[in-house]
Structure formats: C-alpha cells, structure tokens
C-alpha cells in the first residue's frame, strides 16, 4: 500500500526577506548571465541592480528555466543563473525532466518560493500546500537543495561560478509578502539586444 503524503501548509510569515535573499545571491555576480521568470523574482533581481546581462520575462510562464537551458547550451563557457518563483516553475515542471536529461554543467536554477501566487492576489500555490520543488528536482536528477539562511546563500554563491556535474536547483523559502515593486524594462526586443550586445553578438 502506498503511504499517503502528508502535506504541511506553509506559513505566510516564515522564510527569508526576498529582497535580501536575491541581493545576497547576486552580490559579486561577475560574469553571470541571469534570466528571471515572470513576477516578483524579476522585481527582486531588478532591485538588486539592473544589468545588461539580465533578461527579464514578462510572460511565457514556465519558460525561465528552459530558456536558461538553451542559453547554457549555447554558451558552455559561461555560467547561467535562472531566478524564478514557485508559480512560474510549477508551470514548467516537465522542464525539470528535460533539463536533467540535457545535463548542462553551467546552469543553476533558483526558485524563490513564497508558497503563493503573489501577482494575482496571494492565492496559495502547490508549494504553499506542501509540495517540495527541491524534492521533485532531485527525483528528476538535478542536484537540488533548500537554502535556509542568508549565510547558506552566501556560501553557495561561489558554486554559481563553478562547473557542476549537472544542473543545480536551489529553493529559497521567502515570506509571502508583496514588497514595493521594482519594475524592469518591458520591451523584450530591447532586453534581447542589450543582452546579445553584452555577449558581443551581432544584432540582425
């Protein structure tokens, strides 16, 4: 008989401050190429400092980690960091399997997990109902864990610049709160051209 899975609802008040967590992650970012999923994680990345090597998604939910895969495959010499939310990653769960099979050694996905859909009225998400994205990612074959504190985030920062055996996924649990928005540019062509120029690529 299969043992039923017990689901622990996530508290809205526990977890790290999301802005502090993302700022700690991006400190001394160096040559990192950064892609952000739709919603609050992109505001967090923008608040930490806009950068030509940032690409912010304003739609296409579920795309962020997979876009990271394509970028990591196209630029194996560079390190790629995807920062997204639980809701965005939940919409692309199959992508974790695709990424695991592809085995990029230069891709890290960080899921900023507040357990809620923050953009749409703070409805509880699957992770808020107890689902652990890190465990799912592990089951797919990614190196995955939860970063519990700012100290752990700082300690993991150097890993972002090191080649790994395969793709990594870190979950950072943050408080479910809407902090003041820090809006990145919404013009996707501008962002694309800025990013490609930073990489020294020709614009068509």
């Amino acid at each position: 008989m299969v043992k039923p899975i017990t689901v622990k609802p996530m508290s809205k008040v526990s977890g790290l401050d999301r802005r502090q967590a993302v700022a700690a992650l991006l400190k001394d970012r160096g040559d990192l190429l950064v892609l952000c999923g739709l919603g609050s994680p992109s505001y967090d990345v923008h608040a930490a400092g806009d950068h030509d090597a940032n690409y912010y998604l304003w739609g296409a939910m579920g795309a962020a980690a997979l876009m990271g895969l394509g970028l990591a495959q196209a630029r194996p010499e560079r390190d790629v960091l995807v920062i997204t939310g639980d809701g965005e990653q939940l919409m692309g769960l199959g992508g974790l399997a695709t990424i695991a099979v592809a085995k990029p050694t230069n891709l890290t996905i960080v899921v900023i997990d507040n357990g809620h859909f923050g953009e749409t009225g703070m409805q509880k998400s699957h992770t808020g109902h107890g689902l652990e994205i890190a465990k799912l990612a592990q089951a797919c074959g990614l190196e995955a864990r939860v970063l519990q504190s700012l100290e752990e985030i700082k300690a993991s920062r150097t890993q972002l610049h090191r080649k790994s055996k395969g793709p990594r996924l870190y979950v950072i649990k943050v408080k479910a709160e809407n902090v003041p928005r820090s809006l990145p540019p919404r013009d996707a062509v501008h962002l694309k051209n800025r990013f490609r120029t930073k990489l020294g690529l020709l614009l068509s």
């Binding site: 190429l33 892609l35 690409y55 296409a60 579920g62 795309a63 962020a64 997979l66 876009m67 990271g68 895969l69 394509g70 970028l71 990591a72 495959q73 196209a74 630029r75 560079r78 692309g92 199959g94 992508g95 399997a97 695709t98 099979v101 592809a102 694309k192 990013f195 490609r196 990489l199 690529l201």
Partner: peptide
C-alpha cells in the same frame, strides 16, 4: 549539434529563445 528531447512542445520555444540569446541557431 545539441539535441534536446522535450516533455512537451512548448519547452522547445523557450529553449530555442535561450539559445538565440546566447548566439545559437535552433
């Protein structure tokens, strides 16, 4: 050539977009 097997077709759109961002034709 780097080939990717997908769980669903929409993943390919995101992957190809990321590849182009890095300068590769997909």
């Amino acid at each position: 050539v780097t080939s990717n097997v997908l769980t669903t077709e929409e993943e390919g759109i995101a992957i190809a977009s990321g590849a182009w961002l890095g300068g590769m034709r997909s």
